[in-house]
């Protein structure tokens, strides 16, 4: 449940805030969200990573379809990647890594303040 909420939250943050803020603000926001939602480290990594990765990937694919511009293919050539598809993939992967690590950091941050669990079973 936490995973799904964090994933959706991440996508929303990227889609609505990234247009007006640079990527590093998004990273901080994803870290904070992840700390607030409180999923485990690995699960946070995956949720925020997929959130940002998919949102970035979605945006590039949307631009590709809606504008019909040749720019990704040209950029791919200039950057020596051969094709625009590679560039789309790279954008997605980069989004995934940036989002994922941000989320994981947030999750680990929350863990710092979590009460120690040893008393739970001793009543």
């Amino acid at each position: 449940m936490k995973f799904i909420s964090l994933l959706i939250l991440s996508v929303l943050i990227v889609v609505f805030i990234n247009p007006i803020a640079p990527f590093w603000i998004i990273m901080i926001l994803l870290g904070i969200s992840s700390a607030l939602v409180g999923a485990k480290g690995a699960s946070s990594f995956l949720a925020t990573g997929l959130g940002m990765g998919l949102a970035w990937l979605g945006q590039t694919i949307f631009l590709d379809f809606s504008t019909g511009s040749q720019l990704p293919y040209q950029m791919g050539e200039i950057m020596g990647l051969g094709s625009g598809m590679v560039l789309i993939a790279i954008t997605g992967v980069l989004g995934f890594l940036l989002g994922g690590f941000s989320g994981m950091t947030g999750s680990y941050f929350r863990r710092l303040f979590k009460k120690k669990p040893e008393n739970i079973y001793r009543g």
Binding site: N18, T67, M75
Partner: peptide, 27 residues
């Protein structure tokens, strides 16, 4: 990814789909 590496420009500002070159796809 925010800093240039040799002749390679900073990757993030270039590739961020909301600010990077992707936005130059609009006519």
């Amino acid at each position: 990814i925010s800093n240039p590496i040799g002749p390679v420009p900073p990757i993030a500002p270039l590739i961020d789909p909301y600010h990077g070159f992707w936005q130059n796809m609009y006519s």
